[in-house]
Amino acid sequence: MTIAHYIHRLPADYDIGLIRSRAKERGALWNDVPELHFKGFLLRERGRFGAIASSYSSLYLWRTDEAFRNFLVSGRYKVVTDSFGRADIQTRFALDARRGRADDARFITKQELSIPLDADLTAAFASEIARNREVAEQQGTVAAIIGVDPQTWTFTRILVSEQEPTRESDAAAYEVLHLARPLLDSLPSAGSR
């Protein structure tokens, strides 16, 4: 599985209502995309949950790298570049992705953790996968994903939740404007091995 995330920083005077309308209009177009576990239309609004600027972003969990490739070459990303320009797309290999018991995706948090240079990678991977499975079982979890960037040796923890993020979290918090979820229910469920 491939995690893909891109962010468009918005000008300070940008009308956030336009972003909410865009997500509402375009969200349903993603509800039946083959090979897509989910796509989150996300808003990070200045002054909320620690955000110092507003941004609009999309977060995907693709079933295969070929599906992500097809997204890029089919012209689907052109809709984004035509409106907001070309953003860097952060990609990660998903080490584990689980469906939680909750259903109402209201927030997504994303946390980046550097893997220490002298860490035992096998043990670090096993620990993060075990942690992700525990998170998937927590109340309010819609989905939990752990990814890795082997170029920078960074873990990315993603939580799709119905619960508002806590202030103590060092994760970036996003409001979910729409969650297209064609294959979300095909992920292993919380508690399964």
Results as ranks from 00 to 15, higher is better:
L179F: 03
D88A: 13
S83R: 06
D170E: 15
A12P: 06
A94Y: 03
A12L: 07
A102V: 06
Q138S: 08
L159N: 11
V79S: 06
A190R: 06
R86Q: 15
T2Y: 04
Q90S: 14
R69G: 05
D15L: 11
I108Q: 10
F107K: 06
T81D: 13
A51T: 02
T122I: 10
R48A: 11
S189V: 14
N31V: 04
T166C: 14
R99H: 02
A172G: 14
S192V: 05
G47Q: 02
Q111M: 15
F93H: 08
A53P: 03
S161K: 03
G47Y: 05
A136I: 04
I89M: 08
E168Y: 14
S186Q: 09
G100P: 10
H5F: 15
L117C: 11
S55E: 13
K78F: 14
L159G: 02
V79G: 07
Y60N: 03
I19Y: 00
Q111S: 11
N70G: 05
G47W: 04
A190P: 08
S127K: 06
K78Q: 14
A126K: 12
I3M: 08
L72A: 10
S55H: 04
K110Q: 12
A87H: 07
M1A: 09
T152K: 05
F68K: 05
L43K: 13
F71D: 14
S21C: 08
G75A: 01
N70L: 08
A126R: 09
R63D: 11
A119H: 12
N31R: 07
T91C: 09
E168A: 15
L121Y: 15
R69K: 11
L179H: 01
I108V: 09
A51G: 03
M1G: 08
W62I: 13
R69S: 14
G85M: 06
N70V: 08
Y77H: 15
K110D: 15
K110T: 11
G147L: 05
G85Y: 03
P34A: 00
V176S: 00
F41R: 01
A173C: 12
Y60E: 04
S169V: 05
T141N: 01
A143L: 02
P188C: 00
R22T: 04
V73W: 02
F107M: 03
R48G: 02
I145G: 00
V176N: 01
E164V: 07
L95K: 14
F155S: 02
S58F: 12
R157E: 10
D170P: 09
D13P: 02
I108N: 02
V80I: 13
T152D: 14
F38C: 01
G75T: 11
F155K: 04
T64I: 05
S55M: 07
F84Q: 02
G27I: 10
E25S: 08
I158C: 00
I108T: 10
R48Q: 13
Q139N: 10
E134N: 06
S21R: 15
N31L: 12
G50L: 05
A143I: 02
L179M: 07
H5A: 07
A94F: 04
F125V: 15
V79H: 11
M1C: 06
R167F: 13
P116D: 08
D65Q: 11
D15H: 11
T81E: 07
